[in-house]
Amino acid sequence: MATDSGRDWFGSEKTTGYAKGRAFELGCLAATVFGIFMVFVLLLYVVVDAFALTTPEYGPWLDGDFLTSAHSRFPEKAGIYPALVGSVMMLIVIALSAFPIGVGTAIYLEEYASDNPIATLIEINIGNLAGVPSVVYGLLGLALFIRFVGLGTGTVVVGGFTVGLLILPIIIISAQEAIRSVPDSMRTASYGMGATRWQTVWRVVLPEALPGILTGTILALGRAIGETAPLIMIGAAATVFSPPSSFFDRFSAMPRQIYAWVSFPKYEFQYGVMAAGVVTLLTVLLLMNATAILIRNRYQRQ
């Protein structure tokens, strides 16, 4: 390329070179915007369909009735309530199981075992776990929790534990970053006061790292709420007509219910009920991510 410009320093090559560079820049910009634009348009379509903005005779699909009633084979009566409750109950199980284990692992790796070979091994392992397809975690849940431990097929606890294992690497990695960002001077000050290692971690490092840990965990829970494949493998119900009565009851979750609706080919289901389900799922996801960002922004300023 240097030889190109060597021939003609100030002539026409300069202008064609400029045009080429400009075209390249615009091409790269177009590539960046392409995916964002496509998804933006698709989101617009699904919102329009969920509220039946172009077909007002159907009325809005996503309304109070949709959020408070169960599935029905009549599209105008179908709702997502039991699956919504199921998703929230599953998130509670995940938060209670994966959060403490994930944070515990991060504390161990950052505060107790940094730079020893075992920690390196565990970290490589966590990196690999993050890349295992979600459907494989479903098989693990099926074999481990249902067949080996004997928990009930498709129950909330099994769903929560299985998806909890799936997002464990994400929680660990984000908690590690939060803990790493606590300045060492605070630890040394604590040791200087005669605190033990655990007192330092519990009273100094963790309170300081908590906003970062919470942000990462909420984002990970957002990933969990959209997971479908593992729930299918552990036998979560396609459709339930009442919310689970306990954590040991069989349940359905929002994405599982949306997938169940794929087999209803009627127009009202495809462009009405499913659109409403998708918008409900995305709204919950949006609220969770917004919370995470709020926490991050509030504590970043201090």
Partner: peptide, 29 residues
């Protein structure tokens, strides 16, 4: 120091769980 050791063991168990998950996946498959 007994408490410190207990905490250390608990945290190590958490970290070991991720390795157990890998073996669990390979084993069950």
């Amino acid at each position: 120091s007994a408490k410190e050791r207990g905490v250390w063991l608990l945290l190590l168990t958490c970290a070991a769980l991720s390795v157990f998950v890998t073996f669990g996946i390979i084993g069950t498959l």
